[in-house]
Design a protein around this nucleic acid. Sequence first.
DNA 1: TTGACATATTCCAATACAGGAATATATTGC
DNA 2: GCAATATATTCCTGTATTGGAATATGTCAA
Lengths: 113, 113
Amino acid sequence: MARSSTTSDVFNAVAEGRRRDILDTLIAGEKAVGTIVTDLALPQPQVSKHLRVLSEVGLVSSRAEGRRRLYRLEPTRLQPFQEWLAKYEQAWNERFDRMGDYLKELQEQGEQQ
Amino acid sequence: MARSSTTSDVFNAVAEGRRRDILDTLIAGEKAVGTIVTDLALPQPQVSKHLRVLSEVGLVSSRAEGRRRLYRLEPTRLQPFQEWLAKYEQAWNERFDRMGDYLKELQEQGEQQ
DNA sequence: TTGACATATTCCAATACAGGAATATATTGC
DNA sequence: GCAATATATTCCTGTATTGGAATATGTCAA
């Protein structure tokens, strides 16, 4: 069995570098597919396929404007990431706290001598 | 061509649910492989293989203690995530700002009537 | 309607991955 | 050295996924 479907998982959707590139370029604002294609210098079908995956996990939304299709970032869907990372910030901070304690110990030892 | 190697990319390493489970269980602190195996009820070889991937991207480190091997979280390696997400917080906030502006507009219109 | 433009989908091939089972590599105690 | 414990690696299989090329769908303009 391989990795679980990319369609249902925000983490998998973002794991692909090209998809992150697409999301990154959408930070600037709504863009048509063709604009993304030229900005990132990728083949159009690839961009459409990546947009499909991103769309299925809700990281982007689209609206039609004539024959163009404008895609927009949906940053609220990054919340699973935020939440997941938040759990680690604590461990991260404790790490620095311990380092601080250690430095303080060293300092106190130095003062005693 | 398939997905780019999971070994070299923190995003790919974390895309796998089981690996996130392992990281999660290591928040509590250093653990031996066997402890992870019983805690998560996973086959030992799978745990070892996932730990290898996590180790190769630096998300965990290990030290030998007798015949056991203790794995520890390296939360600083989550920095690429933090940084990547930070770019989107701006877009996120602007979104809420616009929503705030819109609500304010509605409110002002209501006051005029 | 026909042609041009914009985007999406389908088909194909190559590859990488997760999971399972079996096995290999320490390390300890007798 | 030998058994037992702890962990890592290898081999295998099924499957998901990406990229490429070709094609389909949709939309506008003349």
